[in-house]
Nucleic acid binder design. Sequence first.
DNA 1: GTCTATACCCTGATAGAC
DNA 2: GTCTATCAGGGTATAGAC
Lengths: 204, 204
Amino acid sequence: MTKLQTPRRTQAERTRASREKITQAAIDFFARQGFRGTKLADIAKAANLTEPGLLHHFPSKTHLLMEVLKERDRIDGERLHATLQKNGKHFLEASIELVEHNETVPGLVQLFTLLVAEGVSQDHPAHTFFIERYQRSRQNMVQGIIRAQQANEVRSDIPAETLVVMIFAMMDGLQVQWLLEPEKINMSETFQVLTDLLKVKDGN
Amino acid sequence: MTKLQTPRRTQAERTRASREKITQAAIDFFARQGFRGTKLADIAKAANLTEPGLLHHFPSKTHLLMEVLKERDRIDGERLHATLQKNGKHFLEASIELVEHNETVPGLVQLFTLLVAEGVSQDHPAHTFFIERYQRSRQNMVQGIIRAQQANEVRSDIPAETLVVMIFAMMDGLQVQWLLEPEKINMSETFQVLTDLLKVKDGN
DNA sequence: GTCTATACCCTGATAGAC
DNA sequence: GTCTATCAGGGTATAGAC
């Protein structure tokens, strides 16, 4: 009886490993060539599978895309949460850490830069996903910024909602120039110039 | 003799009109679906042509793309130049006018947002174009910012090169959120919050 | 769970008539 | 300058065997 369970667990694990390999390969290709520019066959090959083998795990290319996006968001959310848990870190400092981390994963940065741009089109499969993603991200950060304003750490003459839009805009915009010329653009340093401007100065 | 010239001129004019229609249609489709997501047949149809009819004017899809990009840059460059000619306008104010103008042409904003993101890939036909475009844009603006710093209009505690990177990053980043939610994001107002932060304050 | 084979559509580009 | 006809190649997805 126990012997019968062993292959079953192995099967499930093998499935999970396959899905893991597929999503990882999908991230690589979506990052470099976008959703529309990537062919399933390439992802399949990189995951040591054929095309139908891949489609056994994900019913369609679009399903695979959404899986990739949600998975990345889950991981990033966890890391941001962990950063905020650290003593003395408020949202402005956490956002700097996020940018510093992004400098170590250019492929993922490229993935979101390209997919968000594609997702602007109303008929793109991930259009709603990205709208809701920005709404969620901004909402989360607004709470922290308001607290920082009340603690007189962040300047209060600009509405928290505006500050948050600016912070995410600066992140996204820096990524473009940095992706094009990584050696020339210091993303985290430049980003920090903005956050410094948003902090309360003596005599403000 | 004069009668012979008339049809020739008409031919040339017709050609120019065809090319004009094609590039306009190409802008629309590239904006909505990107370069890779657009098919030549759609552009041709929108320009009242068949596919081979289009390819008579532009030898390939890539040639058409580059034509579109250069044409847009030429027009935008002219308008920026005109803005700077106006009395009392320095580069920071000119950039605000640029953002305000962009709010009236969402299609073009989407075009560049998507094509730049695609162009990040090293094997994209417009990769080098966009690198050089940012270099040129930044270079142009740095000159103006340095003059504004010397005139004590813009804060001098941040290098002009850094300021320029930030200004273009904020533009690009705001465009993404604005394209996704035009009603919710006030692009030019938010951009102006940044430029105000970069101006010299009393007691700075 | 993964394969081979294949259906079927789309896409960029060419040849050659008008 | 624009068309019809057509090609070669690539793309997603399915059917059915193992």
